[in-house]
Design a protein around this nucleic acid. Structure first.
Lengths: 134, 134
DNA sequence: ATGAATGCAAACTCTTTGCACATTG
DNA sequence: CAATGTGCAAAGAGTTTGCATTCAT
């Protein structure tokens, strides 16, 4: 049976408070700053559980995992700026359908998909004219 | 001045050979299997250089950095069985278009995307009825 | 009371760095 | 010959795990 501990609630709550994506360690720091005495491992475990349960969304950037609260009914993907790290949610309904169809065509079940787009956001595109020779 | 060593060439070449994204360690393993005696650190350094020079593309997934040669003509996606590891190439033309459009709509440039589908292949789907209690 | 969850610290994985030696230009 | 690249091993960063203790049920 899954127990209901204040730590787990604290993680869920803090994740909901935070605006964008946040790293496990940053979340742990925030929780500590808020006066709680939660352990880092517990934060990691809670985040893993939340992700498994579909309550959190995760992506890894630059060697660390970033988490964000996620409503189970809105499966979405991300458009990530490779330079400044800005992240935008994108709806990917066409891709959802396509993914389901491809999986079905090949007889695959329990299909999950990973769809992320990396690029340079408008600001970063302007700031640095990438030297390119095509 | 940047020197021209066989190690650097070997990394560039091996990266070009490999199909999709590949981790530094996997690349190192492949190079070792090919009979070379290149060091892991050298592979990392070469990959960093190649990325800086725009000859390689990088993204991090699941805590490790994946690299790929930056030539856009080797672009396809994979349908991967989570149980037995079988991998099939899939055409993703609709997704290509969608990705390009989404990036453009948001003003992103130099967009790359990651699209992979994980599931259970027909055989594995039959073999193991996944115990699930929703 | 019972057993899952916590917290700490040690273990692990991936990556980077310091330094002596080899190699390139 | 001078300076840059290499290889090894040790150090770092992020994450996971083992185990005794605490706490929800």
């Amino acid at each position: 049976m899954k127990r209901n501990t204040w730590q787990r609630e604290a993680v869920r709550s803090a994740l909901g408070e935070s605006d964008g994506f946040i790293s496990a360690q940053a979340l742990h720091g925030a929780l500590r700053d808020s006066g709680t005495t939660i352990g880092l491992a517990t934060v990691y475990r809670a985040l893993t559980d939340l992700t498994d349960e579909g309550e959190a969304d995760t992506l890894t950037q630059d060697g660390e995992a970033l988490y964000r609260a996620c409503t189970p009914d809105t499966h979405h993907h991300h458009l990530i700026c490779r330079r400044c790290g800005a992240t935008e949610e994108i709806a990917a309904d066409p891709v959802e359908q396509w993914a389901r169809q491809v999986a079905a065509e090949h007889g695959y079940t329990k299909a999950e998909h990973v769809v992320d787009i990396f690029g340079l956001c408008p600001a970063c595109s302007r700031l640095s004219e990438t030297p390119d020779t095509p």
